[in-house]
Amino acid sequence: MTFMTLLSWLSVACILAGAFFFIAGTVGLMRLPDRLSRLHALTKADNVGLGLLTLGLLLEAPGLLIGLKLVLIWLFVLVASATGAHLIAKRALRADGEDAH
Protein backbone atom coordinates (compact mmCIF):
# COMPACT_ATOMS: atom_id res chain seq x y z
CA MET A 1 0.00 0.00 0.00
CA THR A 2 2.76 2.40 0.91
CA PHE A 3 4.63 1.36 -2.19
CA MET A 4 1.58 2.18 -4.29
CA THR A 5 1.18 5.60 -2.71
CA LEU A 6 4.89 6.26 -3.11
CA LEU A 7 4.62 5.32 -6.76
CA SER A 8 1.64 7.61 -7.30
CA TRP A 9 3.41 10.49 -5.53
CA LEU A 10 6.43 9.93 -7.77
CA SER A 11 4.12 9.93 -10.77
CA VAL A 12 2.53 13.21 -9.72
CA ALA A 13 5.96 14.74 -9.16
CA CYS A 14 7.07 13.69 -12.65
CA ILE A 15 3.90 15.09 -14.24
CA LEU A 16 4.27 18.39 -12.42
CA ALA A 17 7.93 18.63 -13.45
CA GLY A 18 6.86 17.97 -17.03
CA ALA A 19 4.28 20.74 -16.81
CA PHE A 20 7.01 23.06 -15.53
CA PHE A 21 9.14 22.34 -18.58
CA PHE A 22 6.16 23.02 -20.84
CA ILE A 23 5.71 26.40 -19.14
CA ALA A 24 9.41 27.12 -19.57
CA GLY A 25 9.17 26.27 -23.25
CA THR A 26 6.23 28.61 -23.77
CA VAL A 27 7.91 31.43 -21.87
CA GLY A 28 10.92 30.95 -24.12
CA LEU A 29 8.70 30.95 -27.19
CA MET A 30 7.15 34.24 -26.18
CA ARG A 31 10.15 36.09 -24.78
CA LEU A 32 13.29 35.07 -26.69
CA PRO A 33 14.45 37.66 -29.21
CA ASP A 34 15.15 35.77 -32.44
CA ARG A 35 13.55 32.87 -34.21
CA LEU A 36 16.33 30.34 -33.81
CA SER A 37 16.31 30.82 -30.04
CA ARG A 38 12.56 30.45 -30.07
CA LEU A 39 12.85 27.26 -32.09
CA HIS A 40 15.40 25.99 -29.58
CA ALA A 41 13.10 26.73 -26.64
CA LEU A 42 10.12 25.11 -28.32
CA THR A 43 11.78 21.91 -29.47
CA LYS A 44 14.02 21.21 -26.47
CA ALA A 45 11.99 22.24 -23.44
CA ASP A 46 8.75 20.77 -24.72
CA ASN A 47 10.37 17.44 -25.44
CA VAL A 48 11.84 17.19 -21.96
CA GLY A 49 8.40 18.13 -20.59
CA LEU A 50 6.71 15.45 -22.65
CA GLY A 51 9.34 12.92 -21.57
CA LEU A 52 8.73 13.63 -17.90
CA LEU A 53 4.97 13.52 -18.47
CA THR A 54 5.29 10.16 -20.20
CA LEU A 55 7.46 8.86 -17.37
CA GLY A 56 4.88 9.99 -14.83
CA LEU A 57 2.05 8.26 -16.69
CA LEU A 58 4.24 5.21 -17.26
CA LEU A 59 4.56 4.72 -13.48
CA GLU A 60 0.79 4.35 -13.34
CA ALA A 61 0.28 2.48 -16.59
CA PRO A 62 -2.33 -0.27 -16.18
CA GLY A 63 -0.75 -2.69 -18.64
CA LEU A 64 2.31 -3.52 -20.65
CA LEU A 65 0.74 -2.50 -23.97
CA ILE A 66 -0.19 0.94 -22.65
CA GLY A 67 3.34 1.45 -21.34
CA LEU A 68 4.80 0.37 -24.67
CA LYS A 69 2.55 2.82 -26.50
CA LEU A 70 3.59 5.64 -24.18
CA VAL A 71 7.29 5.00 -24.83
CA LEU A 72 6.60 4.70 -28.56
CA ILE A 73 4.77 8.03 -28.57
CA TRP A 74 7.69 9.76 -26.90
CA LEU A 75 10.19 8.25 -29.35
CA PHE A 76 8.07 9.33 -32.32
CA VAL A 77 7.82 12.85 -30.94
CA LEU A 78 11.57 12.98 -30.45
CA VAL A 79 12.20 11.94 -34.04
CA ALA A 80 9.57 14.36 -35.37
CA SER A 81 10.91 17.18 -33.25
CA ALA A 82 14.53 16.71 -34.29
CA THR A 83 13.57 16.51 -37.95
CA GLY A 84 11.23 19.47 -37.70
CA ALA A 85 13.70 21.67 -35.87
CA HIS A 86 16.35 20.89 -38.46
CA LEU A 87 14.03 21.61 -41.39
CA ILE A 88 12.70 24.87 -39.93
CA ALA A 89 16.17 26.10 -39.05
CA LYS A 90 17.50 25.25 -42.50
CA ARG A 91 14.64 27.08 -44.12
CA ALA A 92 15.11 30.08 -41.84
CA LEU A 93 18.84 30.25 -42.53
CA ARG A 94 18.45 30.04 -46.32
CA ALA A 95 15.87 32.85 -46.09
CA ASP A 96 14.05 32.03 -49.29
CA GLY A 97 11.47 34.52 -50.37
CA GLU A 98 8.46 32.25 -50.64
CA ASP A 99 6.56 33.77 -47.77
CA ALA A 100 8.68 36.74 -46.87
CA HIS A 101 5.80 39.15 -47.23
Binding site: G25, T26, M30, R35, R38, D46, V77, R91
Partner: peptide, 28 residues
Protein backbone atom coordinates in the same frame (compact mmCIF):
# COMPACT_ATOMS: atom_id res chain seq x y z
CA UNK B 1 -0.27 31.36 -25.53
CA UNK B 2 2.14 29.65 -27.91
CA UNK B 3 -0.51 29.77 -30.64
CA UNK B 4 -0.69 33.55 -30.21
CA UNK B 5 3.01 33.69 -31.05
CA UNK B 6 2.40 31.42 -34.00
CA UNK B 7 -0.45 33.56 -35.31
CA UNK B 8 1.23 36.94 -34.93
CA UNK B 9 4.80 35.67 -35.35
CA UNK B 10 6.99 38.30 -36.94
CA UNK B 11 8.79 35.80 -39.20
CA UNK B 12 7.37 32.96 -41.30
CA UNK B 13 9.51 30.52 -39.32
CA UNK B 14 7.43 31.25 -36.24
CA UNK B 15 4.38 30.12 -38.13
CA UNK B 16 6.00 26.86 -39.14
CA UNK B 17 6.45 26.05 -35.48
CA UNK B 18 2.66 25.65 -35.17
CA UNK B 19 2.77 21.96 -36.01
CA UNK B 20 5.68 21.43 -33.65
CA UNK B 21 3.88 23.18 -30.79
CA UNK B 22 0.58 21.40 -31.40
CA UNK B 23 2.44 18.12 -31.72
CA UNK B 24 4.18 18.16 -28.37
CA UNK B 25 1.64 20.11 -26.30
CA UNK B 26 -1.33 18.41 -27.90
CA UNK B 27 0.07 14.95 -27.27
CA UNK B 28 0.85 15.86 -23.65
Amino acid sequence: IGLIRVAIGPTPSDRLMAAQLLGTSGIG
